[in-house]
């Protein structure tokens, strides 16, 4: 089998941690959008969900920073954050070391990656799972792209990683879902938190939906930093999903919710040969 589902969504910690501070109707529509993504995911009957996230120093640090890392364990713990602050209880999430190993071996044929038999989840993975698999009953394979500690993973390598992931998924007997998590423009964890460049976001989502490789890879970090903040570096995870799915995207939800620090996004992509 191969890919059975591809999507992207926001992972900002405020979505769960500061829900009480947001405008209730916005929260309601966002939750509904997560719910319908969860249903779509379930309907694809996946055996495992690959989460391509941009983590925030839960596992990787500048002492030894991989451009790409893939988890290879049977269980993962999360969140590392104070559970009350994040609004998500600490839990254990099922993995599949054998499936990870097979994916890793194939991806390694074209992209140099690190693997990790220990991996703690932060909000980059926990917030999406909280909505999409609230019972934590689906096997997760965590993958990370360095969007946080410069020098960052080049965008064209994020694309190559997505292609390699697709090739690897194609060799597996399992039904694999993939999800890229991150923000588009945002200035998280700064006094600017809540600043959102909606025009930039919509332009990015247009290119992403059209799977316009040239446009996606034409972004550069200097312009992104200026126009979309350091949070904008997380477009890498969305770009790798485009490369893996090869299809066309549909944006089901996009709305700036300033107290969540991000233009909240839920989108899926068709899977094309």
């Amino acid at each position: 089998m191969s890919l059975v589902f591809a999507g992207i969504c926001s992972h900002a910690p405020g979505i769960t941690g500061r829900a009480h501070m947001a405008e209730p109707t916005a929260v309601k529509s966002l939750h509904a959008a997560y719910r319908s993504m969860s249903e779509q995911l379930k309907a694809s009957r996946p055996d495992a969900l690959v989460v391509i996230a941009a983590e925030h120093f839960a596992n990787f640090f500048m002492s030894n920073m991989p451009s790409f890392a893939i988890g290879m364990a049977d269980r993962y713990e999360g969140p590392i954050e104070d559970p009350q602050w994040l609004g998500i209880a600490r839990t254990s999430v099922p993995g599949n070391a054998d499936l990870s190993r097979r994916l890793i071996q194939e991806i390694m044929q074209s992209v140099d990656i690190a693997y990790a038999e220990e991996w703690k989840f932060d909000h980059g993975i926990m917030v999406p799972l909280h909505f999409l698999t609230p019972d934590y009953d689906l096997t997760i394979v965590p993958m990370n792209i360095n969007c946080q500690g410069p020098p960052l993973t080049p965008l064209h390598r994020a694309w190559a990683f997505g292609e390699a992931l697709r090739r690897a998924a194609d060799t597996c007997s399992e039904r694999i879902a993939i999800l890229g998590t991150g923000g588009i423009s945002h200035w998280p964890a700064t006094p600017d938190s809540g600043k959102i460049n909606e025009t930039w976001d919509r332009e990015f989502l247009r290119s992403w939906s059209a799977n316009n490789k040239a446009a996606l890879l034409a972004y550069n970090d200097t312009d992104t930093y200026r126009e979309a903040g350091q949070g904008g570096f997380e477009i890498r995870t969305f770009i790798s999903v485009s490369a893996a799915a090869k299809g066309l995207g549909s944006v089901h939800f996009y709305q700036p919710i300033p107290i969540f620090a991000v233009g909240c996004t839920i989108a899926t992509m068709t899977i094309t040969e």
Partner: peptide, 28 residues
């Protein structure tokens, strides 16, 4: 300090969000 490290540290300290934002502005 990278904001993500700092934000998680503020959470560990139990600092409410508005206080965390205010603390950074005061710092500047």
């Amino acid at each position: 300090a990278n904001g993500q490290l700092l934000m998680h540290y503020a959470a560990y300290l139990g600092m409410p969000w508005p206080e965390y934002i205010a603390a950074m502005r005061n710092g500047v």
